[in-house]
Simulated assay, not measured.
Amino acid sequence: MRIITISLAALALTACETYSSSPYMASTQNVIDIEDRVGEARVRLGDFSSDPEVNDRPICRLTAPLDVSPGVPVSEYVRQAMLTELHQARVHSSSADTVIEGTLDRLAFSATGTGSWGFTLSLRSNRHPDGYTVSSEHAFSTSFDGHMACTNGINAFAPAVSTLINAAVNHPEFPRLAGAQ
């Protein structure tokens, strides 16, 4: 009986591993693209929300949750990442008339075969109420070993968000969204 209890306790402890993402770092390319596309316009970010179907803690290989946005909803992680990019590009102003809002419509994750993160994000502003929607896919290397595959997956999350932001700021409607047109 004691061996069974110890075995169950060991199994429970090993199954409770959680992988957490790193803080977001601005992408030089995204910052340059924002500066080039927005010019002198200034924006502020409003609320970002998630579709109710978006899972903020996807499971990696049916064993471990991925804490992609420690302490905040994943939509807020995306918002803060975009805010970081806008600040670096000197485009964000808390008093700007143009307010950009967003909805994270899809978050997809796979750590089998070629790993990938997938996103769909809808953006709108008071200058462009209909807004637009972008989707992005970001591939990463996985591994036969589950631990390494999940580690690679969580390490690819911030770069995947950068890929999403790149798609958003390079959309043909971004200058209009930002009030630059």
Rank of each mutant, 00 (worst) to 15 (best):
125 S>T: 05
161 V>Q: 05
52 P>N: 02
130 D>R: 07
9 A>S: 14
31 V>K: 14
103 T>A: 09
152 N>G: 05
26 A>E: 11
109 F>L: 06
3 I>C: 13
24 Y>I: 05
76 E>R: 08
159 P>E: 01
70 P>H: 03
29 Q>A: 13
72 V>C: 09
124 R>V: 06
168 A>V: 14
7 S>Y: 12
150 C>A: 03
148 M>A: 13
8 L>M: 13
139 A>R: 08
162 S>H: 07
143 S>E: 01
83 L>W: 10
145 D>Y: 13
17 E>L: 15
121 L>E: 05
45 L>N: 02
38 V>S: 04
83 L>Q: 10
170 N>A: 02
149 A>Y: 00
77 Y>G: 11
158 A>S: 15
9 A>P: 12
32 I>N: 13
86 L>A: 03
6 I>F: 15
32 I>P: 11
9 A>T: 07
22 S>V: 09
62 L>I: 11
2 R>M: 07
141 S>M: 07
35 E>T: 15
174 F>N: 00
61 R>Q: 11
101 E>M: 12
43 V>N: 08
125 S>A: 05
152 N>T: 03
78 V>T: 01
116 S>P: 11
131 G>V: 08
71 G>F: 04
66 L>W: 01
4 I>F: 06
158 A>C: 08
148 M>G: 15
126 N>M: 04
136 S>C: 04
161 V>A: 08
16 C>I: 06
45 L>G: 08
93 S>Q: 06
85 E>K: 14
70 P>E: 11
84 T>Y: 02
78 V>L: 15
27 S>T: 05
52 P>W: 10
58 P>E: 02
166 N>A: 10
118 G>Y: 03
10 A>E: 12
167 A>P: 11
83 L>K: 09
21 S>R: 09
16 C>V: 09
130 D>W: 04
86 L>N: 01
114 T>R: 14
38 V>N: 01
109 F>H: 03
53 E>R: 15
26 A>V: 06
39 G>Q: 06
23 P>R: 13
158 A>K: 03
144 F>D: 12
164 L>G: 02
17 E>W: 14
32 I>F: 06
115 G>Q: 00
166 N>C: 06
118 G>Q: 05
128 H>V: 07
62 L>A: 13
154 I>N: 01
1 M>S: 11
74 V>S: 04
27 S>I: 07
122 S>E: 15
14 T>M: 06
174 F>G: 02
169 V>P: 11
122 S>V: 12
126 N>F: 02
7 S>R: 14
159 P>D: 03
95 S>P: 05
54 V>H: 01
163 T>Q: 13
29 Q>G: 07
